[in-house]
Amino acid sequence: MMQVDRRNFVKWALKVFASLSLARFLGNYRLLHAATKNPDLVAVKDGSPAQMFEIGIKAIGGMESFIKKGQSVLVKPNIGWNKSPGQGANTNPDLVGKIVELAYTAGASKVFVFDHTCEQMNECYDSSGIKKAVIKNKGFMLPGDEEGHYKKVDIKGAKILKKALVHKQYLDSDVVINVPILKHHMSTRMTASLKNLMGVVWDRRIFHRKGLHQSIADIALVKKPDLTVIDAYLIMADNGPRGLTSSDLKLKKMQVISTDPVLADTAAAKILGQTPEDIHYLNMAKAHGIGLMDLKKSTIKKISCKV
């Protein structure tokens, strides 16, 4: 038993102080070092969706480098279908919840989540589990099922979709984080980050009428999402975007995080087993100057969560 006299106490206290300050210094140094050299794309694998995001966002510079204090944040997941999280049709709810939580820790004033769903809105919000996860983390679920929530905008540089009704919160938010799930698509071959932006537009039938690929590339000109997180944990490899049976799904346990939506989609296409050049809207988005498609020239950081 150590005797607690004055001398011993002072020695002990000094040791604790010294180690704490050293740790703090080291930690700061590491953060500073990382911030100077952020990779273009971070690919994480073999963890849970929320865990992979926590590790991945640190590797790309931390949530603080995207969200300044007091900014409003929009998280745009894919909540298109009235399906449960295990059916791989909507973004993982834990991931969305984690992003909302980390956005608040980074100093966001308000975090909003919405999607213009393909099926009835309330059913999709409930059965996807996303509404529960967002409300648990004090985020705000916004409706997107009425024309009144949308505002007409002119799209500069668009080829065919010169005007569109875009959700007001998408236009007003300071920071937009696009969180799609990686899925096969029956007509565009793949749906990931650029295709997920169809969920901020009111009239989507016009996309199909005018030309689906070009419209998808055009709508990305409205606003470039600040961060793209592609959920490739449970991917739909066939019969997408809705999926018919469990045999359409594949467990990949991956996640792609990037500031460049086109680059993220290119990497996602490879994970899905598609040739990125075959996906027309990616080439068109590249032609618009939204992002790059060259994975070899960009810096990629690959992380495995397996110990």
């Binding site: 690919a43 694998k45 066939d238 469990s246 467990l251 990497a267 087993g273």
Partner: peptide, 21 residues
């Protein structure tokens, strides 16, 4: 009922699960 491609009920992870890029 909707046609199933194969009768695999459980979704399993690929053995070789590395990034293809």
């Amino acid at each position: 009922a909707p046609k199933k491609k194969d009768k695999k009920a459980k979704v399993e992870q690929d053995v070789d699960n590395d990034f293809p890029f």
